[in-house]
C-alpha cells in the first residue's frame, strides 16, 4: 500500500477498466456523460468511450431503468447510474419485477446482467427525500445481489465483480464517501467476491457489524472502546447485504458472544433485524447478552442540523450501549 485514491475515482476507474475489457458494457443515467456525473463518478469516461457507450438520459428513471433491463436481456451489460437511490424509487419496479424476477420466471432462460448503482443512505443536510438507506428494501428480494462498499479498494473490486456478474446487482455507494481517500495497492485491484463480509478489525469481546459509511463509525466506536474502556471489538464490514455472509458473522459471534449492528437505515425490518435473526437462529447458545441494533430514528430525515444529528446513529450512544452489553456500566 503506497498510494491513495478517492472512493469516487475508484468507482470511475473500475467502470473504465471494465469498459476497456468488454465492449458490451455501457454507462447510462442522468448527467453521466457531458456533466461527467452529478458526483463526478464518470469523469473523462465520455472522452474515452464516446456517446455510444456513455449515455446521458432525460430525467426518467423508470424509463431508462427499463431500457437498461431490455438491453441486458438482449445480451448487453448496462451500468445504470441513479443520481441517488432515492430517485430509484421511480424505477424499483424494473429493478425488482423485471431484472430480479425474469431468470426465475423464464425457467432460467433469460438472465439480466445489469448493475444499478449510485449514492444511497444519508449524506448530510439534504433532508428526508434525499436521505434514506434502501439496503433492506433490495436485500429482501430474491434474484438480486446487493453490495455496499466502504473503502476505495472495495468500491473498485466489487464494482468490477458486479459488472462481470451475470445477475442484476444493486450497488450502493455513499455520497459522503466519494471524497474520502483510501490507500490502494500499486498493482491492479482484482474483482472481489460479492458475497463475503470482511473482518476489518479483530477483537474478542463484541462483534460490531456495519456496511457502507457505518463501517467508519464502527471503527471509531471500536477505537474508543479499546482506548478508553479496554473493550476489544471485532468490526465486520458486511459488504454484501444479499446474500449476507452468515459464516463470517457466526464465526465472530461464537468468539465474542456479543453482537451489535449499526446502520443508517431505519430499525424496523432493517439489515440489523436480519443480522440478529441469523445470530439467534444459528448461534443462540453462544450469546452472552441480548443482541442490539442501532439505526436511524424512525422519522423522515429532518433538515435542521441538530435534529439530523439526533436522528442518525450516535457514536457515544453506541459506545455506552456496548459498555452495558459488556457489563461495564
Amino acid at each position: 500500500m503506497s498510494k491513495t485514491t478517492s472512493f469516487r475515482l475508484a468507482i470511475r476507474d473500475a467502470i473504465a477498466d471494465e469498459m476497456r475489457r468488454d465492449p458490451r458494457i455501457f454507462l447510462i443515467g442522468e448527467e453521466v456523460a457531458q456533466y461527467q456525473g452529478a458526483y463526478k463518478a464518470s469523469q473523462d469516461l465520455l472522452k474515452e468511450f464516446g456517446h455510444k457507450r456513455v449515455i446521458d438520459t432525460p430525467i426518467a428513471e423508470y424509463g431508462f431503468a427499463g431500457i437498461g433491463v431490455g438491453a441486458a436481456f438482449a445480451g448487453l451489460r448496462p451500468i445504470v447510474e441513479f443520481m441517488t437511490f432515492n430517485f430509484a424509487m421511480q424505477a424499483i419496479d424494473h429493478i425488482v419485477n423485471s431484472a430480479a424476477k425474469t431468470l426465475y420466471m423464464s425457467g432460467g432462460s433469460i438472465n439480466c446482467p445489469i448493475v444499478f448503482r449510485g449514492p444511497n443512505g444519508a449524506p448530510r443536510n439534504v433532508a428526508a427525500q434525499h436521505s434514506q438507506c434502501f439496503a433492506s428494501w433490495y436485500a429482501h428480494c430474491p434474484g438480486l445481489k446487493v453490495v455496499a462498499p466502504y473503502t476505495a479498494i472495495e468500491a473498485n473490486g466489487l464494482l468490477k465483480a458486479a459488472i462481470r456478474d451475470d445477475n442484476p446487482v444493486v450497488f450502493l455507494e455513499h455520497e459522503s464517501l466519494y471524497g474520502k481517500n483510501f490507500e490502494i495497492p500499486d498493482n491492479e485491484i482484482l474483482p472481489m467476491p460479492l458475497d463475503r463480509a470482511i473482518v476489518v478489525r479483530g477483537g474478542a469481546d463484541v462483534t460490531i457489524t456495519a456496511f457502507s459509511i457505518s463501517v467508519d463509525q464502527a471503527l471509531s466506536v471500536a477505537d474508543e472502546l479499546q482506548n478508553k474502556h479496554g473493550i476489544s471489538a471485532e468490526v465486520i464490514n458486511l459488504v454484501s447485504l444479499r446474500p449476507i455472509d452468515k459464516d463470517t458473522i457466526i464465526k465472530s459471534v461464537k468468539k465474542t458472544g456479543r453482537i451489535l449492528n449499526i446502520e443508517e437505515g431505519w430499525l424496523e425490518c432493517g439489515i440489523g433485524s436480519e443480522i440478529i435473526s441469523i445470530v439467534i437462529e444459528d448461534a443462540f447458545d453462544y450469546l452472552d447478552c441480548e443482541p442490539k441494533r442501532v439505526a436511524t430514528a424512525g422519522v423522515p430525515m429532518p433538515y435542521s442540523k441538530n435534529l439530523e444529528q439526533l436522528a442518525l446513529p450516535d457514536t457515544n450512544q453506541i459506545v455506552n450501549l456496548i459498555k452495558c452489553m459488556c457489563r461495564l456500566n
Partner: peptide, 11 residues
C-alpha cells in the same frame, strides 16, 4: 414498453 426500447437500444 421500456424494455422494448431497451431491446431496440441493443439492436
Amino acid at each position: 414498453v421500456s424494455i422494448g426500447a431497451g431491446l431496440a437500444f441493443a439492436h
